[in-house]
Amino acid sequence: MGFAGENSDRGRPGGRRNAIEVSGVAKAYGDLRAVDGVDLQVAEGELVGILGPNGAGKTTLLEVIEGLRRPDAGSVTVLGEPVWPRNAGLLRRVGVQLQASSFFERLTAREQIRTFASLYGVGAGRADEWLERVGLVEKADTRVEGLSGGQAQRLSIACALVHDPELVFLDEPTAALDPQARRNLWDLLSGIHEAGRTVVLTTHYMDEAEALCDRVAIMDAGRVLRMDTPTALVRGLDAPARITVAPGQLSVDEARSMDGVTDAADTHDGVVVTTREPTTVVAALAATARLDGVRVQTATLEDVFLDLTGREYRA
C-alpha cells in the first residue's frame, strides 16, 4: 500500500521549510531541568532521531513538541502552527506513538484500530490494512490486554499511522520488539520516509539511528549536545580504527613494529591493532599473507554517543 502524496525525493534539511521549529524550550519538574534551553529544527520530509541516555530529556522534549506538555520557556511551531495552547487543528495532521501504550479496555486489536481510525474519519478497510502492515492479522480478534508487549507496541504504532499523518512522532518504537519485527518496522518507517512524511523518533539503538535517520540529535541533561548526519558525527569524532588479526598469525611485538600502528593487544579473538592508518596496516598484512579472518572496525555512532555522554551507568 502506498501513501497519499508519495514523493521519491527524500527529506533534506537544505532548501525545504521546517516542519518543526523549537526555540529556547525549557521544562523543569521542581529542581530537575528535564529540558534546558533546547533549539531544534526538523525539515519537512526529514527523518530525525533523538538519542540520549535514560533521563536525558528525550521523552519530555517530544511531549512538549507534540503539545502534550506546556513548556516553562521558549516556543514550538509544528507544521507552521504553534502547539500551545493545545492546537486542535494539528490533531489530524500529526501521529503520535507514546512510550507507554494506552488502549481502550476490552476491545480486540481490530476494534481498537478501527476505533482510532473512526476518530479521524478513516474507514474500516484502511484500519484493517494497517493491522496487516504491522503483522497483527492473526491477533485481530484478541483483546488488547491479551497481546504481548511487542504486539501491543506494533498496534500502538499502527494506531498512530492509520490516518496517514504528515508528521509522525515515535517514542522508542522498536522497544520490546523481536529482531524480525524490528527489521519489518524499519522497512515500514523507511516507506513512510520515502513517501515524504516527516518522522521524529527516540531510540536507544545506535544501529537503528544509523540505518534510518537523515540526522540525529544527541541529548544529555536536558540539552542537545550535537546534531548532524550519522556520517558527519562519526567523522567528527576522529577515532582510531581497530583491526583484529586472527590468532596465531601475528604477535603483539610484530604488530607494534608495523608502520601506522599506535598500539596492539592480545585478546581471545586474536591480536587487536589500533591505528589511524588502517589502509597502511591492511596493505602490510596483505603483503605477508595475513588477511585471513582480519576484521576492520572503524568508529560508529555508538562511539560518538559514549564520547559525548560518558560511560557511567544511569539510574
Rank of each mutant, 00 (worst) to 15 (best):
190 S>A: 15
180 Q>D: 12
202 T>C: 07
178 D>I: 07
160 A>L: 10
179 P>Y: 14
165 P>Y: 07
154 R>L: 15
142 T>F: 14
174 T>C: 04
186 W>T: 04
198 T>P: 08
216 V>Q: 03
161 L>K: 00
192 I>D: 00
190 S>P: 00
200 V>T: 11
192 I>G: 00
147 L>G: 12
133 R>E: 15
238 D>Y: 03
157 I>Q: 01
168 V>P: 03
160 A>Y: 06
232 A>Q: 03
145 E>C: 02
167 L>Y: 03
219 M>E: 04
213 C>P: 00
230 P>E: 00
204 H>K: 04
200 V>Q: 05
210 E>L: 03
153 Q>K: 15
231 T>D: 10
174 T>N: 03
213 C>M: 06
135 G>C: 05
234 V>C: 13
202 T>V: 09
202 T>N: 05
144 V>G: 03
227 M>W: 07
205 Y>C: 05
232 A>I: 01
234 V>A: 12
144 V>E: 01
198 T>F: 11
217 A>H: 01
243 I>Y: 09
238 D>K: 12
174 T>I: 09
138 E>G: 14
211 A>F: 09
163 H>K: 09
233 L>F: 03
187 D>C: 00
197 R>E: 05
244 T>P: 07
176 A>N: 15
194 E>G: 11
218 I>Q: 03
136 L>C: 07
170 L>F: 14
221 A>R: 13
178 D>F: 10
180 Q>K: 13
232 A>T: 02
212 L>F: 13
154 R>K: 15
235 R>T: 13
212 L>D: 02
228 D>S: 04
174 T>F: 11
191 G>W: 06
188 L>H: 02
222 G>F: 13
221 A>P: 02
182 R>Y: 15
166 E>D: 12
220 D>Y: 14
195 A>Y: 12
152 A>F: 13
217 A>M: 00
223 R>Q: 09
175 A>P: 10
180 Q>M: 10
169 F>V: 11
143 R>A: 11
201 L>D: 04
207 D>L: 05
196 G>E: 10
148 S>Q: 08
173 P>H: 07
157 I>L: 15
228 D>E: 06
134 V>H: 01
220 D>I: 13
219 M>N: 15
145 E>G: 08
202 T>L: 01
132 E>I: 08
170 L>E: 01
141 D>R: 15
213 C>E: 00
140 A>F: 14
233 L>R: 00
244 T>S: 05
232 A>H: 01
136 L>R: 04
243 I>Q: 04
203 T>P: 12
225 L>R: 03
224 V>E: 00
227 M>G: 04
174 T>M: 03
216 V>F: 04
202 T>P: 01
188 L>N: 02
228 D>P: 06
158 A>G: 11
179 P>C: 13
191 G>R: 10
155 L>W: 14
227 M>F: 10
179 P>W: 14
195 A>R: 09
